[in-house]
Simulated scan of single mutants.
Amino acid sequence: MNLTVTRTAIPEVMILEPKVFGDARGFFFESFNAKTFEAATGLTREFVQDNHSRSARNVLRGLHYQIQNPQGKLVRVTSGEVFDVAVDIRRESPTFGRWVGVTLSEANKRQLWVPEGFAHGFVVVSEHAEFLYKTTDYWYPEHERSLLWSDPDLAIDWPIHGEPQVAAKDAAGKRLVEAEVFEGELGFAASR
């Protein structure tokens, strides 16, 4: 198989490492194949939207989720390096409120599967980074929510010095104790 999968401390969040074929000309790898993804992860997902962002060092994007139309995300970096984070916000989950962080880079070519029911964010640790992600549902701004990146209850160990550069909506993110989270089979929930 051309894909190695490693489960993180939250088993539903997975690191995917494609087999890279390289020689003096450069490299080639299959960045996504639905059959390979299903065989390696046991998941069947249809991706409906691709997103691409470019950010400078110390830019932190997140922690985002959609309380309705939740998105699963398959994320990767094509230039630079980021520290990528997924936070479990499924109330009935044994890992509710826990997070995992993974370094994704142009060099390691890793991808991260962030399932529906998780908040997601990243911080750029290189001079710049280009970040690509496939989503299982469309972006609905009216359903988008942000967890506060610096929530002391989450205690995410972001590899930054000083304050990161964040969007206004992320600076106004809610702490997990007051955020809307997922109930049951990713049903809508009011504040905690």
Rank of each mutant, 00 (worst) to 15 (best):
M1A: 13
N2Q: 14
N2R: 14
L3D: 02
T4N: 12
T6N: 13
T8R: 04
T8E: 06
I10Y: 05
P11L: 12
E12G: 08
M14A: 05
M14G: 00
I15Y: 03
L16F: 05
E17Q: 15
E17D: 14
P18F: 00
P18A: 11
K19G: 00
K19D: 10
K19F: 05
R25I: 04
R25G: 08
G26W: 10
G26H: 12
F28W: 12
F28Q: 07
F28H: 11
S31A: 05
F32I: 10
N33C: 14
A34I: 02
T36C: 09
E38F: 03
A40P: 01
G42Q: 09
L43K: 13
T44D: 13
T44K: 15
T44N: 13
R45Q: 08
F47H: 00
Q49Y: 04
N51L: 00
H52A: 09
A56W: 07
A56I: 09
N58L: 14
N58I: 00
N58W: 12
H64L: 06
H64G: 12
H64T: 09
Y65G: 05
Q68R: 15
Q68I: 02
P70N: 03
Q71S: 09
Q71K: 06
Q71H: 06
K73I: 10
K73N: 11
V75M: 08
S79Q: 12
G80R: 11
V82K: 09
V85K: 07
A86F: 04
A86R: 08
V87H: 11
R91W: 09
R91H: 12
S93D: 06
S93C: 09
P94G: 09
P94C: 04
T95C: 03
T95H: 13
T95F: 09
F96N: 10
G97I: 04
G97Q: 07
R98A: 10
R98G: 02
G101R: 06
V102E: 10
T103E: 13
L104T: 10
S105K: 11
E106N: 04
K109Q: 15
R110P: 07
V114P: 01
G117Y: 02
G117N: 05
F118G: 06
F118A: 06
A119S: 12
A119M: 08
H120E: 08
F122H: 05
V123T: 15
V124H: 11
S126A: 15
S126C: 11
E127I: 00
E127H: 04
H128F: 14
E130A: 14
E130I: 11
E130Q: 14
F131R: 07
L132R: 09
Y133F: 15
Y133T: 11
T135F: 01
T135M: 01
T135Q: 04
T136F: 06
T136A: 07
T136V: 04
Y138V: 06
Y138G: 05
W139H: 15
P141D: 10
E142L: 09
R145A: 02
S146M: 07
W149Q: 06
S150P: 01
S150Y: 04
D151A: 08
I156S: 04
I160K: 10
I160R: 11
P164I: 08
Q165V: 15
Q165W: 00
V166G: 06
V166S: 13
A168M: 03
K169R: 15
K169H: 08
A172E: 14
G173H: 03
R175I: 00
V177I: 06
A179M: 03
E180M: 08
F182V: 05
E183Y: 01
E185G: 04
E185D: 13
F188R: 12
F188D: 01
A190N: 07
R192N: 10
